[in-house]
Design a protein around this nucleic acid. Structure first.
Length: 933
RNA sequence: GCCGAAGUGGCGGAACUGGCAGACGCGCGGGAUUCAAAAUCCCGUCGAGCUCAAACUCGGUGUGGGUUCGAUUCCCACCUUCGGCACCA
């Protein structure tokens, strides 16, 4: 736990001081409750009675509360885990008391790099490390008294689990995306369709529906019928349509980790885990066609109740942009270069063109004089890592190819350059440059002295500001706003400034005078008619790189035959388990350690052929993409989950976890879910209806917790010193759930005192319920505070404001601790209100009050609005907004009575003496404001 | 650079839909209890001024403006911190 060098000594020293100061306080004082025994007692009770086991009870409404399951690390829990888990546990316990049938499971996301890195270093099998870590974390989680249904635990590394991960992968492998219906369907249906001759295969391997086409244009040009393809072509075609496919792609290769990484796993040019350098390298990899789902992933965000910020992150990550593809002829060649642009309206201002250095036409069109320069530039671009490319992005670089393109709208010859600011992986890998209206192009044109022609006239109002990203430091002091706008306007028209906003077209032939929006539409239509271009949509989202060259992951259930074909295993052959290996080190050649195990690798097929297994493994995300479904039916060996159970429990009603999964896990999961939805395995289009992110907990020094800073708080120690109930209560009392907030041990002590006070108020030295707890009826005030407390806690739980709920409970306990006699009914109601937050002490007191059953399913107390209302209200009396006095009025007092009383105050009289009263504002149960003239 | 969130006492934070800023907790000061301490209980605690004291007056929610009878809350500009993206045409 304190594994950093020197950590042991620190730990010893700290704990020594800590125990010295605290041990006598905790244990030797009578009146302090013995949380240790109580918490163990109730944890045992819940476990042996399976108090929280859930079944499909049709008589109750269901409620599915999900925690993002943890990676079982060797560090064990940190205090950030229990934050989300406590919140979800409070909601779970509350919902049970409200009559819901609650599913609240937990499991282990146990594949992944740390256990494997440890294996590489020590030779210990990752399964062993993983098991040890799971055992430790399970112990820790259990010690917090969470109401999980432990019978439903899942472990992604368990073959009984990953059998189904592999099965879902096979479903992807055996599916294609139907463009018309916008959904996944089995490949077998595609083949059936094609064999029925209703479809053609286009030259670009697109599927063309035969029905409307012959009527309009006859047979599509270059298209062939399925039967006209030979067997290999058919095979290749099928493979190109699979949702899981192999491709040669430029990947993020991390030499240190010996694996490729997804774009999302590379942060600023280094690996997310470990911070190792990452370079670009073309490799054969398994990909998942998440891009087919881009629109649905985007559109369906409106179905879910998620924080807007997370929705926005996903929206930006998908990065949909609508524009046009335009074809440019290359002067002197037959070739055409297609560009993607979101501003087809600026076509008349395209003064040059830029290709990505990796663009396939670069070599062909480069002139002899430019050959050397281009070659050299390509070489440097290639050797640059992504990090370098970004870093050097401050200064644009590029080389002229010597070739020219023809601008299709005005037949101007424009030079073709190459530059690495154009990415091969987005759009068509080529752009038309409109320096007058694109910041990057402007910068490039200025550097290389290329022509700049303004074609959009900016508006001369404040909207001009929105189109200028770096307004120069004009002497704004002396300028009115209007003068500033026209100064900027002049600069734009003189090509001294780049304007990227909307305006009116100029220098644009017949289109001159159109607004940006009109122009876009008209030119797109015009291009279409002329056969020069078409409307196009592009996404930032890329297909998901799904293979890793590691040992500790799910093996792909695939065989590669000698003839180059790929065979998927049958469901009955799953799970395909990992073989034992001598070393866990990746081969370093881009192959996983699995490639070195011949007995596993080589397979003899029933027909006598030999085949090799796929040696890549799946990334850690695979197992976490669907675990919430396995919880529904965790022990089923014949199916991943029963349809009926899925129907009952899904979707997840509440999902709590860290915001760091905003675009990784949450996007991947949604993608898998939609695929499963298309194939009919799940009944909802979205898996997680409500999402709540817990904020990070910082160390006591306000810094991010880390071993090197020595500010890590160990939950085991907090529980040992103050108990699980105090730990839970403090985690919630710290502040709003979503906020980032620092830990404070003194704060834990504060809530611990609250629980002690409650205990002392209700029990005597021997731990028996005090005689002052009587069968009497509550006085009016006590009853009011009780109902106010029930009300506030109820509303606060429903809105995830646990901190203020706890404040109110403190107010309640402060009140009853002063009473001579406390009605038993009031006490019991309060215990039930407290129970979701501090379940152990609540169960213990509940039992002491004479109940033999757990309170977990007792109805949550209801509040009476009338009782909760104050009878007498204090109002502030203001004169011209300044408080002069306060008055007490009955809650029923009407405006006239209040006015009268307010005006009667001596201090008010003094303040308004000799002045006219213009107006008296009465805000119900708040204040009175007297306006004088 | 762009996008998003947030700035409130010594500290964590509270404040419904524009209506008494600082609930609740921590810390601190004072007192009670105790041989003494811890624990516990009670009182006080935004700042400044004035006062023996109470009362009272003024200022105060990152900064500067604005709207309003009234702004922590709404609008504009700016500063700071955190999170995300980072040449996506």
């Amino acid at each position: 736990m304190f594994a950093a060098s020197g950590g042991f000594l620190n730990f010893y020293f700290e704990s020594f001081i800590f125990d010295f100061l605290n041990t006598p306080i905790m244990d030797e004082n009578k009146g302090n409750y013995n949380f240790n025994d109580i918490e163990k007692k109730w944890q045992n009770y819940w476990e042996t009675n399976k108090t929280f086991a859930a079944g499909e009870d049709k008589s109750k409404p269901k409620y599915y509360v999900l925690d993002m399951f943890p990676y079982p690390s060797g560090q064990g829990l940190h205090v950030g885990h229990p934050e989300g888990y406590t919140a979800s546990d409070i909601v779970s316990r509350y919902k049970r008391m409200k009559g819901f049938n609650v599913l609240h499971p937990i499991g282990w996301d146990a594949f992944g790099l740390p256990a494997e890195q440890y294996a590489v270093q020590t030779g210990t099998h990752p399964a062993q490390t993983t098991q040890k870590n799971i055992d430790n974390m399970r112990r820790q989680i259990k010690s917090l008294g969470f109401s999980y249904d432990w019978d439903r635990q899942v472990d992604t590394t368990d073959p009984k689990y990953f059998k189904w991960t592999q099965w879902i992968f096979l479903n992807m492998f055996n599916s294609y995306f139907d463009k018309q219906e916008q959904k996944a369907k089995p490949i077998s249906e595609l083949i059936k369709k094609l064999e029925a001759e209703n479809f053609y295969i286009g030259p670009g391997s697109e599927i063309i529906c035969a029905d409307p086409i012959p009527a309009v244009t006859g047979e599509p040009v270059g298209a062939r019928k399925w039967s006209e393809l030979n067997k290999e072509e058919q095979e290749a075609f099928i493979n190109e349509n699979r949702l899981a496919y192999e491709d040669e792609v430029a990947v993020n290769w991390c030499p240190e980790l010996g694996t490729v990484l997804a774009n999302e796993e590379v942060i600023g040019g280094v690996s997310e885990r470990g911070g190792h350098p990452v370079i670009r390298k073309p490799m054969r990899q398994w990909m998942l066609r998440i891009t087919k789902y881009a629109d649905r992933l985007l559109d369906d965000l409106k179905l879910v109740d998620w924080p807007e910020s997370i929705k926005k992150l996903q929206t930006d990550w998908i990065g949909k942009s609508i524009g046009a593809e335009v074809d440019f002829k290359v002067d002197g060649f037959d070739e055409i270069i297609t560009v993607f642009t979101t501003r087809p309206d600026t076509l008349f201002g395209a003064t040059y063109m830029v290709l990505s250095p990796e663009h396939p036409l670069v070599d062909e069109i480069t002139t002899a004089e430019q050959k050397n320069a281009v070659e050299e530039y390509k070489k440097t671009a290639q050797s640059k890592s992504d990090l370098d490319r970004t870093d050097l992005a401050k200064e644009k670089t590029g080389v002229f190819t010597g070739a020219f393109a023809i601008n299709p709208v005005n037949d101007e010859k424009i030079p073709i350059w190459i530059s690495d600011y154009v990415l091969i992986s987005y759009g068509t890998g080529a752009i038309m440059s409109v320096p007058a209206h694109d910041d990057r192009d402007f910068e490039f044109a200025k550097k290389f002295n290329l022509a700049i022609i303004p074609v959009v006239e900016p508006p001369k109002d404040k909207t001009i500001m929105q189109g200028i990203s770096n307004p120069p430091m004009v002497a704004t002091k002396d300028l009115t706003e209007e003068a500033l706008w026209s100064a900027l306007y002049e600069e734009v028209m003189k090509c001294e400034l780049c304007f990227t906003g909307n305006g009116i077209a100029v220098n644009s032939g017949e289109f001159t005078g159109l607004s940006t929006a009109e122009f876009k539409e008209q030119i797109t239509n015009w291009l279409n008619e002329q056969g020069l271009g078409k409307k196009a949509i592009n996404y930032k989202l890329r297909d998901w790189l799904f293979s890793r060259q590691r040992y500790w992951g799910e093996p792909f259930p695939l065989l590669h035959c000698e003839d180059g074909t790929t065979i998927a295993l049958e469901k009955k052959d799953l799970p395909l388990t990992l073989p034992e290996v001598k070393t866990y080190k990746p081969a370093g050649t881009g192959e996983s350690p699995l490639a070195t195990i011949d007995e596993w690798l080589n397979v003899k097929l029933p027909d006598g052929r030999t085949a090799k297994r796929e040696t890549n493994t799946m990334p850690q995300w695979a197992g976490s993409c669907w675990y919430y479904l396995r919880y529904l039916d965790a022990h089923n060996d014949s199916t991943a989950w029963e349809k009926e159970k899925e129907n009952y429990w899904m979707p997840v009603d509440l999902y709590i976890g860290g915001a760091e999964h905003a675009v990784l896990h949450l996007l991947y999961s949604r993608f898998w879910h939609k695929l499963l939805y298309d194939l009919g395995y799940v009944s909802t289009p979205e898996p997680f209806m409500k999402l709540v992110n817990q904020g990070m907990i910082l160390g006591e020094d306000g810094q991010k917790m880390s071993k090197s800073r020595g500010n890590v708080v160990n939950p085991d120690k907090v529980i040992a010193d103050y108990g699980a109930d105090s730990m839970r209560l403090y985690e919630m009392f710290m502040g709003p759930l979503e906020a980032v907030k620092p830990w404070s041990m003194q704060g834990v002590e504060g809530v611990h005192r609250f629980l002690n006070k409650l205990w002392r108020t209700l029990t005597d030295e021997k731990g028996n319920i005090k005689g002052i707890i009587t069968e009497s009826d509550p006085d009016e005030e006590t009853n009011r505070i009780l109902h106010q407390t029930i009300k506030k806690v109820t509303i606060d739980i429903e809105n995830f404001r646990f901190n203020t709920a706890i404040s109110q409970m403190m107010i309640f306990v402060n009140h009853i601790s002063k009473l001579e006699a406390i009605p038993k009914k009031v006490t019991e109601s309060f215990i039930l209100v407290l129970a979701p937050f501090a379940p152990h002490i609540a169960e213990e007191l509940w039992q002491k009050l004479g109940h033999s059953n757990t309170l977990a399913y007792e109805p949550f107390p209801a509040f009476d609005e009338q009782i909760a209302k104050e009878k007498e209200i204090e109002l502030a009396v203001q004169v011209l907004g300044k408080i002069k006095d306060r008055i007490m009025v009955s809650a029923e007092a009407d405006e006239e009575q209040i006015k009268e009383k307010a005006l009667a105050c001596e201090k008010v009289q003094a303040a308004i003496e000799g002045k006219d009263i213009k107006k008296v504002i009465v805000v119900k149960s708040r204040l009175v404001n007297i306006i004088t003239g």
